[in-house]
Write a protein that binds this DNA or RNA. Structure first.
Lengths: 246, 246
DNA sequence: CTTAGCCACTTGTTTGGTCAAGTTGAGCGG
DNA sequence: CCGCTCAACTTGACCAAACAAGTGGCTAAG
């Protein structure tokens, strides 16, 4: 039972048609906006049954390469771009390792949750939780204030309440020690004025606008693993994002 | 030949099967990890041909609800969190139709671009462009200020410079009249204080923080179709976003 | 006990049909 | 010139049938 280098795995015909049409869209053989050959024509060209051609067209349609219009034809939409960059400030805060040079742990330990976080973390106001707050420095100047909140059962047995830097980041730490894996992040973002406390820590003047981000990080079962609060002084930060217009 | 209230649009059978199976996954009838009934079984249950059932399963598979294994069966993966909500404020501004009830066109016409927009739209400061600014009202109160900027060659021959509402939205309008299709959106977002002009239009007090969003909308060739500037008073708006933690 | 073969069951792919329904344009009559 | 009808072309939905190929369990031979 050799099989040898017989790695000549021939992809199914519908996949070949998909690939061919994608290439033609990419290289401009079928320009954007233009009408594709009709199903019947493609059937003849590729020597396939109509169902096979239709299947290929349906895949292209679902992937956003073409648009199909009943009674008119299929039209080129363009090359779909899925891979878009996003800011993901909340996830970054949870992910980022703590570095004693660029990060200054403001405080860490058991604390009662403030009203602004209570609902997000799913605990009553003033209930105890583990808080971990750090100031991110750029050129030795305070640039960003990150506060992570953990439910007690998540933080139990971890070093999240210790004021020593966690060099691998909170995500890795929780995942290693507690086998918990984050699955989804819900992020809320708004512009507001900095609180007195934030002004002091970040060295801002009264009345400075900040970008406030509150992210809820949950695992597959919907359990809250952590809440990240990120405060970005408006004059120092811009968030960037890009996405497909389709 | 009316048809009248015959608005009972019956979705195609494959779509009904998709919907039904999605519901069963959502409500736990088919738990995550479990094996779905075989194709033959589903064919019997839904009274459909195998091709139809397979089509439904293929859609579910492509959308990430299930995983299909050759020779073994189809298995529930879970509810996909791809269809995540994203604020996409910039795209919305470009897309949204103008309604004379909820929108008030502040001004529309040829204008020289300010410094804040110049670089984004790719024109020198004070170069002429078509501007279109509207105030979005909620409960007759100003809630949001949207300004669209168009390069002259994009706006030429369109109604984008007219102060009358464009009921189909700028995107549709450009697409119909000029055959230009937006492809990608680059968005920048920051917190800042409202300008005097914005304070006046939005009826804000001095020193109010706002969320400022500047979006560059480009077509497939990278040409800028429009720049959207959205100003959201901080106390009225929160942007929400969710994404996979992976 | 191990293994090879067989069989039932499963999904994967492809074909070739039918009927329905939207679109377009040519031709015709007013 | 306008509006109508109609035929041709298009995609949409569906089905029955066939064959390929992977999986898993049973059984009988080694």
């Amino acid at each position: 039972m050799v099989d040898m280098s017989g790695l000549e795995f021939t992809p199914p015909k519908y996949a070949q048609i998909v690939r061919t049409l994608q290439e033609r869209i990419e290289d401009g053989t079928y320009p954007v906006g233009e009408k594709l050959p009709s199903e019947t024509r493609l059937v003849r060209e590729f020597g396939a049954g109509r169902s096979t051609v239709v299947r290929a067209l349906q895949i292209l349609s679902m992937q956003g390469w073409i648009e199909r219009e009943h009674g008119r034809g299929s039209f080129v939409k363009g090359v779909p771009h899925q891979a878009v960059e996003r800011s993901h400030a909340g996830a970054s805060a949870f992910e980022a390792p703590e570095n004693s040079k660029s990060d200054q742990i403001v405080c860490a330990g058991r604390m009662s949750v403030p009203a602004t976080i209570a609902e997000t973390i799913g605990l009553p106001e003033n209930a105890p939780a583990i808080m971990r707050r750090r100031l991110v420095l750029v050129d030795d100047e305070p640039s960003e204030l990150v506060t992570l909140w953990f439910p007690l059962d998540v933080a139990e047995g971890t070093d999240l309440g210790d004021p020593t830097p966690i060099s691998i980041g909170a995500r890795e730490h929780i995942q290693r020690v507690k086998q918990l894996r984050p699955s989804l992040v819900f992020e809320r973002l708004s512009a507001r004025l900095a609180t007195d406390e934030e002004n002091e820590l970040l060295g801002l003047e009264k009345g400075t606008p900040v970008l406030g981000i509150v992210a809820r990080i949950v695992d597959t079962s919907g359990e809250v693993l952590a809440v990240a609060e990120v405060v970005l002084p408006g004059d120092l930060h811009e968030l960037e994002d890009s996405y497909s217009a389709v």
